[in-house]
């Protein structure tokens, strides 16, 4: 089994896991009861996707690993998620801006994976794309309602978007793993979804009366290769505490 396929599965699995972990932090603290339930639903969907992808990655590793050993016994340098998903929740506008940019990308990425030559990956994508289409509908709708809501909500959302925007670039930067997966017909070239993503984001922002941040500038990257922000190691310290402090225990 190729190392590239393992790496590739980790990237998608870790994106879903880490974003789900962030959303789980909101549970019980949302701005309205309905939001609390909806955001938890998104967290649950992402967690479900993460479990499928990490289980498949564990199978690919073939070393007795499973979803839990991958989630709980890797250090941050072994995580392959993009920097975007590990960014702290901030206020609710920050959380929603991060979610919208991710959903818009994830929905396109999963559509590409539907035609993967790897049947197991295509099957996961088929399940996940239905969920993410709903997430995107919801996060797009909230961009519009909050952007075109009050002056305050527009300002908060614009600030949130400007802040998180630089982290979106990494989604579209390919490397050797992407190239190998694309050549094998398993994956896709990340750059190839950029224009469609941008067109969609632009359309939603226009309706939401939000400004698209200027191109260029600071473009942090490295998450896909295991070089993260300071935030990830703290997130993992919290997430992994029981598994790490009770080695070998079953729960």
């Amino acid at each position: 089994m190729s190392t590239a396929r393992y790496e590739y599965l980790l990237r998608f699995g870790d994106n879903a896991l880490i974003l789900s972990q962030r959303l789980g932090e909101w549970c019980g603290k949302g701005p309205a009861l309905e939001e609390d339930m909806a955001l938890t639903n998104v967290a649950l969907d992402l967690l479900g996707q993460a479990r499928l992808l990490l289980s498949l990655a564990a199978e690919a590793a073939g070393n007795g690993a499973d979803e839990d050993s991958l989630a709980y016994h890797r250090d941050d340098r072994a995580f392959r998620n993009v920097l975007l998903v590990e960014q702290p929740n901030g206020n609710y506008a920050d959380t929603l801006a991060r979610q919208f940019l991710f959903d818009a990308w994830s929905s396109l990425a999963l559509r590409r994976l539907l035609s993967s030559s790897d049947a197991a990956i295509a099957a996961i994508a088929e399940k996940a794309v239905k969920e993410v289409s709903y997430h995107l509908r919801r996060s797009s709708d909230l961009m519009v309602r909050l952007g075109d809501g009050t002056e305050r909500s527009r300002a908060m959302l614009q600030t949130a978007i400007d802040k998180v925007w630089p982290y979106s670039h990494e989604l579209f930067i390919g490397d050797a793993v992407d190239a190998e997966m694309t050549a094998a017909g398993i994956g896709f070239d990340p750059a190839s979804v950029h224009d469609e993503w941008l067109a969609y984001v632009r359309e939603v922002f226009a309706e939401a009366t939000l400004k698209l941040p200027a191109a260029g500038g600071w473009m942090p990257k490295g998450g896909k290769q295991g070089l993260h922000s300071e935030h990830l190691s703290k997130l993992l310290a919290e997430m992994q505490v029981l598994q790490r402090s009770h080695p070998g225990a079953s729960w």
């Binding site: 896991l17 549970c27 309905e34 938890t40 649950l44 029981l242 729960w251």
Partner: peptide, 26 residues
């Protein structure tokens, strides 16, 4: 304990459970 649930399965169950409680409130 959602962020510290000791396995992904337990985390999923707990998330769903706490979400149910919100639903009951509603």
């Amino acid at each position: 304990w959602i962020t510290r649930a000791p396995s992904l399965k337990r985390k999923a169950i707990l998330l769903a459970k706490v979400q149910d409680e919100a639903g009951h409130g509603l």
